[in-house]
């Protein structure tokens, strides 16, 4: 009923779908930065889609399984192996007791999410098992994993999508299981403070490209590029921000907020990356180049609905493939 963390890797933490409902107390949403990837991985191993898994940043993770489990992962272009057998993204695999699983360094992207049948059983704090690294609670003692940690697992779900040993053939669409893109285009809706920027700034924002700064983390991605001038160079009255918000501090270098972002902020918000593209944003790493393209709010909602309907078909497909 447990896994042993033989090597914790660069930055690995327990995450589920986040800690909604406590923002008025200053508690970040947190959770898997690509919540959709974790949902898909959980479905592949027969878990409830909100089960806690591992978020693996830049690899280096090595796990040993104390009992037989089904695993699946989605995310960046990682080399993942059990022994010498590669485990591609988006495929369920049954690992026998005593087996090891290794995450190498990613070729592109920077994060992946591993689901293990039964889910990771850490205490629920404020409605979630997610690790809040900034506030130090949730997950394993509010911290990243360390070499030698032992993680308890939940009871194995009764229905498994994979009856036999080995790697399952059934997988999800490429965009779901491997969302990392080179030089991605992120779709956005206009920011709550869009009108506070002048026409040439808005033009620059939508036509030029931005480089991801090394100074990026689970709170946000800092972007270097053309300076985005603000109409009046004053901060506004603080109000809510959300994952996906692109805010512009006085330096004119925008910050794309991710899951661990603060609940409120005082910088003008030029744009918001749509929910469907947050998984691409979660793969951005230093040196990547990103562009932004505007869509309407209705289109953002249509895309979200479309993806959810496809996920529903995927869920049905999985149950049919269950042997």
């Amino acid at each position: 009923m447990k896994i042993i963390v033989t090597r914790a890797g660069f930055l690995t933490s327990v995450q589920d779908l986040g800690r909604a409902g406590y923002r008025q107390f200053g508690v970040s949403l947190g959770g898997a930065l690509d919540a959709f990837a974790l949902r898909v991985a959980n479905l592949l191993v027969g878990n409830n889609e909100s089960a806690a898994g591992l978020e693996i940043t830049f690899g280096g993770l090595q796990l040993r399984f104390a009992d037989e489990r089904v695993v699946a992962w989605c995310g960046g272009e990682f080399d993942v192996r059990s022994g010498s057998a590669p485990l591609p993204a988006g495929h369920a695999a049954r690992l026998q007791a005593g087996k090891e699983l290794r995450f190498g360094r990613p070729q592109s992207g920077c994060r992946s999410w591993l689901a293990i049948s039964g889910g990771i059983d850490v205490p629920i704090v404020l409605g979630s098992r997610s690790t809040d690294l900034r506030a130090s609670y949730g997950g394993v003692e509010g911290r990243v994993l360390r070499d030698g940690d032992i993680l308890l697992l939940g009871a194995r779900p009764g229905s498994s999508t994979l009856a036999t040993t080995g790697i399952g053939l059934w997988t999800g669409p490429h965009d779901w299981v491997s969302p990392a893109k080179r030089d991605p285009m992120l779709r956005f809706v206009r920011g709550a403070d869009w009108a506070r920027f002048n026409a040439s700034t808005l033009q620059r924002f939508t036509s030029e490209s931005f480089a991801v700064s090394p100074d990026s983390d689970r709170m946000g991605v800092r972007l270097d590029g053309p300076e985005l001038q603000r109409e009046n160079n004053v901060d506004l009255i603080s109000e809510a921000v959300a994952p996906g918000t692109i805010q512009v501090p006085p330096s004119g270098q925008p910050i794309l907020l991710l899951g661990d972002c603060q609940t409120i902020g005082g910088y003008p918000k030029i744009a918001h990356v749509i929910t469907v593209d947050l998984g691409i944003a979660a793969q951005l790493r230093a040196g990547d180049v990103v562009r932004f393209s505007e869509i309407s709010l209705a289109e953002a909602h249509r895309l979200l609905l479309q993806r959810e309907r496809e996920l529903e078909r995927f869920r049905i497909g999985l149950s049919l493939h269950d042997s």
């Binding site: 909604a20 923002r23 008025q24 109000e239 809510a240």
Partner: peptide
């Protein structure tokens, strides 16, 4: 509606 966040002059609706 999932949650609300009051701050200074605004209420955010998630």
């Amino acid at each position: 509606v999932i949650e609300l966040v009051p701050a200074y002059t605004t209420v955010a609706v998630f």
